[in-house]
């Protein structure tokens, strides 16, 4: 670096200080814009849809008249989808996590599975829809049913569930396992009675967060053939179905202002459900942290 005269140094110091402050303001501005956008989005949707949210909106079937249109079948569809997807992905995800953490060791299959899971998490959701259409709807003959939709969503959230369950299992200290083995318990007895109970809150938190992601998924359900107009409640796992995001999509695409309000109201219901599930996850996590 060139030698700088003292007066220059002072000048440059002033300038650098000034630049530093300007940069701080810039950073502050960026985060304000990001948070401000969230605020604008919520306020806009609230203003547009709040007057539309009431009991008859939740308990009515869709209608050609925006004022009478409701979300009962869509909401029920979403609930059933989430129950199916939640159960399937919970069993498969925790099973896979236990296998990878406790059984597989360093074998080649485990390494491949681990890399594979990381990559699956980055596959676009619409591609899962195409997989579901080919495997569940067509090959397995489930048709465009709740079961096909639930299975598709289960595969979609499986990588996230496996990763979070692995973290929860890994957080259980080895001494717990050693204690189990010292008492003569077998590997599975140790896992079932000692490891899983310790990891359970963490696993459940991950499952709830993943499932709340599944509720908002739209694209894969469109691909496997969810209906946009369902004037009946689903009556079994093979029933055709709609889902809350699908209904919102359908209303958004219509030109009438009334349907746009209905869409906003649907979004409010969707966000409240998501918020509730996330709050549940946070409460569970806090309880876990307090206990240990």
């Amino acid at each position: 670096m060139a030698v700088i005269a003292p007066t220059d140094f002072r000048k440059r110091k002033e300038r650098r200080k000034w630049q530093g402050r300007a940069f701080f303001v810039l950073c502050l501005l960026a985060i304000t814009v990001a948070l401000g956008m969230l605020l604008v989005l919520l306020i806009y949707i609230g203003m547009k849809g709040w007057s539309h949210v009431n009991w008859s909106f939740i308990s009515s079937f869709p209608s050609r008249h925006p004022d009478e249109a409701g979300i009962q079948s869509a909401l029920l569809g979403s609930v059933y989808l989430v129950i199916i997807a939640g159960i399937v992905s919970f069993v498969l995800g925790v099973g896979a996590a236990v296998y990878l953490e406790e059984y597989a060791g360093r074998n080649r299959f485990a390494r491949i599975a681990q890399i594979n899971i990381a990559n699956l998490a980055g596959v676009p959701s619409i591609v899962y829809g195409i997989l579901g259409l080919e495997i569940f709807v067509r090959s397995m003959g489930l048709g465009k049913s709740l079961l096909a939709g639930g299975f598709t969503l289960a595969l979609l959230i499986l990588p996230i569930i496996i990763i979070s369950a692995q973290e929860a299992i890994r957080a259980v200290p080895p001494s717990i396992r050693e204690g189990g083995y010292a008492l003569g318990a077998s590997r599975w007895q140790t896992i079932w009675n000692l490891v899983l109970p310790q990891a359970f809150s963490g696993i459940l938190t991950g499952v709830i967060l993943s499932v709340s992601r599944a509720i908002g998924e739209t694209a894969p359900l469109i691909v496997i053939g969810a209906l946009t107009f369902v004037p009946f409640s689903p009556d079994g796992p093979l029933s055709r179905f709609s889902a809350l995001p699908i209904q919102i999509f359908n209303w958004t695409a219509r030109p009438q202002a009334g349907f746009q309000e209905a869409a906003a109201a649907g979004i409010i219901v969707l966000l409240i459900v998501l918020l509730g599930m996330n709050a549940l996850a946070v409460i569970l996590r806090n309880r876990l942290e307090n206990r240990s």
Partner: peptide
């Protein structure tokens, strides 16, 4: 049980194979 858990882990690998095969 070990085999069942292995199957669970295999589902994620099968998903990838399924996606690639179908496409």
């Amino acid at each position: 049980i070990g085999f069942f858990l292995f199957l669970c882990a295999a589902v994620s690998v099968l998903t990838t194979i399924g996606i690639v095969a179908v496409l």
